[in-house]
Write a protein that binds this DNA or RNA. Structure first.
Lengths: 244, 244
DNA sequence: GCCACGAGTGTACTACGTACACCAGCTTTA
DNA sequence: TAAAGCTGGTGTACGTAGTACACTCGTGGC
C-alpha cells in the first residue's frame, strides 16, 4: 500500500517537469517565492533532487526563459517585414504578460540559451527577408532592444501618485490623498500634469493608470516607421560605408 | 591610546557615508558583492550599525540611485527641446556607465524616491517647455522608457559568439573557436551575419563587439525624430481627442 | 545473482537580511 | 551636578537561501 502510494506520487521527475513546475510556481506565487526548496516541496521531493535535472538555479531560470520562448508564435509568413515584426513582438508581449516574472528574469540573464539565440536569429531573419541591409538590421535590432521581447521598462508602472507616496491607494484616507496631491502639485508639477492627462476620466491621479498596451504600440510603431524610412532611403552607417 | 585609536577609526557613520561607500563597493566589487555584511566590514563597523542609517537593504539601493541621479546634469538652458533632451539623456548615460550596477538596480526598483521623481519631473518639463502637448509628452515619455536613464536592454552585451558558447573568449583554443563558428553559422546564420558586420575589422565574431554608444544614439535620434514629426503635425491620441 | 548506474535523500556548510536586547557616551534638563 | 533620555554602535540569534558531498535504493544488463 505504501508502495502503491509512493508509486502514485512518484511520477518520475525530469527536466521538463521541473521547468514547468517552476514556471507555474513563479506565475502563481511570484518570482521571489521561487526558491529551490519551495520548488522541490511543490514537486513533493527533496531540494537536492532538483540538481539531478538542472545544474543550479541560474540554469533553472534559463530553462524557464526557454519555456517562455516556446510560447511565442513563429514569424508570420506572407506578410511584409513590418507587420511580421509587429505581430511577433505583440505575440511575445502576450506571452510575457502571461508570466509576470518574465521581464525581470529576462533582464537578469547574462547567457543566451540556444532557444533564445534561435528566437533572435529568426527575428533578425524577418528584417533580412524584408530586404534590409545587414548593417541596418543590426542597428535596428539594437533600437528595438528589449521591445523585441514585448516589454519596455515601465516608468509609470503604478500611477505617479502611488509612486510618490510609495504605497497602495487602498487604506489611505481621502484627506491624506488630497494632501499628497497638493504636495505633488508643488514638487512635481509636470509629473502631475501628465499623470492627470493619463487618468482623464475622473481627474484623480490615483486611478487605473494608463493604457500600457497603447503606450507600447505607440513606441513600437514609431520605431517601425523610423526603420521603414531609413530602409527606403537606403540608409547606411558610416562604419559600413567605410567597408565598401 | 586605545581611545585615540578608536577616535581615529571612528569617523562617525551617517547616511551619506553609508551610501557613498555602497556605491564605491558596488562599483569596484560588483553589485552581487554588495551585502549588508560586506558593506559594514568595508566601513569597519558591525552589520547592524548600518540599520541606524538605512531602514533596510531596499532603502540602501534606493539611496544609491539617488546618488546616481545627483550625478546627472540638470537640463541645458537656452536650447531647443530636442538637444536639451538629447544632452540630458547622454549625461545620464555617462553617469550610468560610471556605475555598472546602476542598470540592474534601476530596473529592480519599484518605488520612486523624491530624487527620482524630481528627475522625471524636470525631464517632462523639457518637452512641455518645448511646446509639446501634455498628451504627446505622456506618450513620448513612455516611448523613451528606460532610455531616459541612458540605457537600453543590451541584446548583444557580449559578442554573439561568446553568448553562444556561454563563455569568455580567453582560454578557448582557436580550433574550438573555429568549430563554434561553424556551429553558429549553421544554427544561427542571421545572427552570425549581423555579428560579422558589427565586427567588420577582422572578420571574427569574437572581437571587440559593436559600438554601444553609436547604437544608443541611433535609437535615441530615431525616437527624437519621430517625436519631432508628431509634434509638428500636432498629433493627438484618440483618448485625448475624446476629451476635447 | 551480481553489479553498475542514476534518481532521490540527508546532512551540513556558508552566506544572507534583519529582529531584538543591550550598552556607551553625549545632551538636555531639573 | 546628578539624573534622564537620546543616539549610534554592538552581540547574539533566527530563518531562509543555494548547494557540496556522501549516502541509499530500485532497476536493467550481463
Amino acid at each position: 500500500m505504501t508502495q502503491q502510494a509512493e508509486a502514485t506520487r512518484r511520477i518520475p521527475l525530469n527536466r521538463e517537469r521541473v521547468l514547468t513546475a517552476a514556471v507555474v510556481l513563479a506565475d502563481e506565487a511570484g518570482i521571489e517565492a521561487l526558491s529551490m526548496r519551495r520548488l522541490a516541496q511543490e514537486l513533493g521531493v527533496v531540494p537536492m533532487a532538483l540538481y539531478k535535472h538542472v545544474a543550479n538555479k541560474e540554469e533553472l531560470l534559463d530553462g524557464m526563459v526557454d519555456v517562455l520562448v516556446g510560447e511565442i508564435d513563429p514569424p508570420a509568413r506572407d506578410t511584409g517585414w513590418q507587420s511580421a515584426v509587429r505581430l511577433r513582438v505583440l505575440s511575445a508581449r502576450k506571452a510575457l504578460l502571461r508570466h509576470p516574472w518574465a521581464r525581470q528574469v529576462l533582464e537578469s540573464r547574462t547567457t543566451r540559451t540556444p532557444a533564445v539565440l534561435g528566437y533572435m536569429d529568426s527575428f533578425i531573419g524577418m528584417f533580412l527577408a524584408g530586404g534590409f541591409s545587414v548593417d541596418l538590421t543590426h542597428h535596428v535590432m539594437h533600437a528595438l532592444g528589449s521591445r523585441m521581447w514585448g516589454f519596455t521598462q515601465e516608468l509609470f508602472d503604478d500611477s505617479a501618485g502611488n509612486a510618490a507616496a510609495g504605497m497602495a491607494p487602498s487604506g489611505v484616507t481621502p484627506e491624506t490623498q488630497e494632501a499628497m496631491l497638493r504636495e505633488m502639485a508643488q514638487r512635481y508639477p509636470n509629473i502631475l500634469q501628465v499623470a492627470m492627462a493619463a487618468n482623464h476620466d475622473d481627474g484623480s491621479v490615483v486611478s487605473q493608470g494608463c493604457d500600457d498596451q497603447f503606450e507600447f504600440e505607440f513606441a513600437l510603431d514609431l520605431l517601425l516607421a523610423g526603420f521603414e524610412r531609413f530602409h527606403r532611403q537606403g540608409w547606411t552607417s558610416e562604419r559600413a560605408k567605410l567597408e565598401r
